[in-house]
Design a protein around this nucleic acid. Sequence first.
DNA 1: CTATCTGTAATCTGCATAATTACAGATAAG
DNA 2: CTTATCTGTAATTATGCAGATTACAGATAG
Lengths: 151, 151
Amino acid sequence: MNSEFAIATHALVYVSHVGRCVSSEELAENICTNPARVRKVMARLVPAGLVESRAGAVGGYCPTAGLDARTLADVADALGTRLVSASWSSGDVDRECQVSSGMGALMQGVYDDLDALCRRRLAQTTVGDVVRELFSGRGAAAKGAAAGRDD
Amino acid sequence: MNSEFAIATHALVYVSHVGRCVSSEELAENICTNPARVRKVMARLVPAGLVESRAGAVGGYCPTAGLDARTLADVADALGTRLVSASWSSGDVDRECQVSSGMGALMQGVYDDLDALCRRRLAQTTVGDVVRELFSGRGAAAKGAAAGRDD
DNA sequence: CTATCTGTAATCTGCATAATTACAGATAAG
DNA sequence: CTTATCTGTAATTATGCAGATTACAGATAG
């Protein structure tokens, strides 16, 4: 997948942690990318209510009330991020052969299925979980919300 | 992910369906790619016992005894395919800030978790399932093996 | 009114992926 | 033994996409 999901998650975690409005420049510095890219990503989180954006001198991206409780699935949905996908499709739908004509759509279905599965998993981890995980000392990730689960 | 997984699956389904040795040229024609690429992918399925390769005039890639029962997870494993991954990592491990220094590894952990989840799902679909799905008339994919499951 | 910030578009650059070409080695047929 | 056919693999080229960079209009607080 592209990096938008990582940028958005990183930014939300940062904003949630510091608990104040943060400019795209400060976020870019922390994430290690450029401010324009941050703004491009963050702008799509606003309609989803994940952050508030404020123009002007003391503006930036500000934490919303329920931010900590929002899940990583909310982030992925807001961005339309595809967790599992393929840019390439095999076969040719116009071919007589059912294998050649059918495999493209079939594999697409497999990817859709896996993507939905991942999305359900991400729905179990909140922004708050990530913040706590980050400051718990342990290096392992996403265990907080997924602990005890094996599927 | 890259297209190797799709090419390999398509090729195995084709070989399984026709039930005889198939040359890289015939596979490439059906998959819609070039023979060299097919050979490059197929060569890595041989050590995993997913197909047999034979040089010479009547050679090609031949179905093995248990091919139909092998799962898509076997294919992914043979190729080292990563279902969920990101080429980009946010933050900087050398930074003082725990958010900046920790987010990269944390997200990597999330991706590892999702990837393992997908792998377990693929372990529930066999090459034979795909062949049957392809000739069942229904367009939806991977439902045969995943029917009734919702997680 | 001005400084600062977001939203967004346009362009450039670099990298990953796939196509193409080529050839050495293996194998079956005659 | 010779030949035709096929795999395995490397080298090169082409292409598309992701991310960086630059620029600027619009909004807002002081």
